[in-house]
C-alpha cells in the first residue's frame, strides 16, 4: 500500500517538477515571474490533442509537437510583452502584471473558440496496460511520464552546463549588462530561454493531460498553484530546488490523500508554500539571502 502510493506520488511529483522547471528557469535567467507560463501548459496539451484527433498522431509525435508549439508561443509572448519592459529596466511587478493580464486574455480567447468543456484523448492513444511486480502496479503511461521527465531534465542539464548556449544563458542569468559587454547576443539568448521553458511547460501539459485525461483551456491556471508552491519551496530561480520540491510535493499530496483525506490534499501545496515563506523564504537549498525589500 505505502510503496504503491510512493510510486503514484513519484509520478505526480515528476509532472510537477517538469512543470515548475520551465517556470523557475524563466525567473532564474530573465528575472520575471511570467504568468503566461500556465498558458504554454494548456496550449501544449491542446496541440497534442488536435494532432492525435486530426491525423491520428501517436504520443511520440504528439508530445514533441505540443512542446515545440508551446515553445514558439512562449518566444512570441515574451517578445511582445516583455521586450519593452526589459529595455526600460522596469521592476518585477510591472512584468508580473503584464503577463497576468495577457494570460487572462489568452485563456479567455481559447475558451471562446474551443469552449470550456473537458476534452479527452482518443481511445487507444496510449497503451493503457500496466505491469506489476511485488504488488506494485505501474501503468505504461506512468512509466512514460517518469521516463520523459528524466530525459528532459538530463537534456536541460547537459544544455546548460556543457554547451555554448548554456554558457550564454548562465552568463545572462548572472548579469545582463556584463553578458552584453562580453559580446553575448542577449536578444537571442532571451528567445532561447523562452523557447526552452515554453517547451518544458508544453511537454508537462501533454503528460498531465495524459495522466488525468482531462484537457480544457484553464487547466494551466489550475496547475499554477502547484507551480507557485514548487518554485517558492525550491527557491526562486533554483532549478535543482524546483526538481526536488516538485517530487516532494507530489509524494506529500498522494500520501495526504491516502492517509488523511482527499480534500486535505488540495491544501497541501498552499500550506507548505506559506510555511516556507514564514520559516525559510530562501527555499530548500537557498544559501544567499532572499532579496529583502
Amino acid at each position: 500500500m505505502l510503496s504503491q502510493q510512493l510510486v503514484n506520488g513519484l509520478v505526480l511529483g515528476s509532472t510537477y517538477a517538469l512543470f515548475a522547471l520551465g517556470f523557475t528557469l524563466i525567473f532564474g535567467v530573465l528575472r520575471v515571474i511570467n504568468l503566461t507560463y500556465g498558458f504554454y501548459f494548456s496550449i501544449g496539451a491542446f496541440v497534442a490533442l488536435t494532432a492525435a484527433r486530426s491525423f491520428g498522431a501517436n504520443i511520440w509525435v504528439a508530445l514533441p509537437l505540443g512542446a515545440i508549439a508551446a515553445g514558439l508561443v512562449a518566444v512570441v509572448a515574451d517578445w511582445i510583452l516583455l521586450t519593452r519592459l526589459r529595455r526600460a529596466k522596469a521592476g518585477e511587478l510591472s512584468s508580473l502584471m503584464v503577463t497576468l493580464g495577457a494570460v487572462l486574455a489568452l485563456y479567455s480567447l481559447m475558451a471562446v473558440f474551443i469552449g470550456t468543456d473537458i476534452q479527452r484523448f482518443p481511445f487507444g492513444f496510449v497503451d493503457n496496460s500496466a505491469i506489476e511486480f511485488s504488488g506494485i502496479r505501474i501503468s505504461l503511461v506512468q512509466m512514460l511520464i517518469i521516463g520523459t521527465t528524466l530525459v528532459l531534465v538530463a537534456l536541460l542539464f547537459v544544455l546548460l552546463q556543457r554547451t555554448k548556449l548554456g554558457l550564454m544563458i548562465r552568463a545572462l542569468a548572472e548579469n545582463e549588462d556584463a553578458a552584453r559587454l562580453m559580446g553575448i547576443n542577449v536578444g537571442l539568448t532571451v528567445a532561447a530561454v523562452s523557447f526552452l521553458s515554453g517547451m518544458l511547460g508544453g511537454a508537462a501539459g501533454v503528460l498531465i493531460g495524459l495522466n488525468f485525461n482531462a484537457i480544457q483551456p484553464f487547466m494551466g491556471e489550475h496547475m499554477m498553484l502547484r507551480g507557485f508552491a514548487v518554485i517558492i519551496i525550491g527557491g526562486l530561480g533554483d532549478i535543482r530546488g524546483a526538481l526536488i520540491a516538485g517530487v516532494l510535493l507530489g509524494v506529500l499530496e498522494v500520501l495526504t490523500a491516502g492517509y488523511i483525506s482527499s480534500n486535505a490534499k488540495e491544501a497541501v501545496a498552499f500550506t507548505i508554500l506559506v510555511l516556507t515563506l514564514w520559516f525559510r523564504p530562501v527555499g530548500l537549498f537557498g544559501r544567499a539571502q532572499a532579496k529583502r525589500a
Binding site: 515571474i33 511587478l93 532572499a290 532579496k291
Partner: peptide, 9 residues
C-alpha cells in the same frame, strides 16, 4: 520580502 512573494502567494 520583495514584492513578487506577496503577488505569488
Amino acid at each position: 520580502l520583495s514584492g513578487v512573494y506577496l503577488a505569488i502567494s
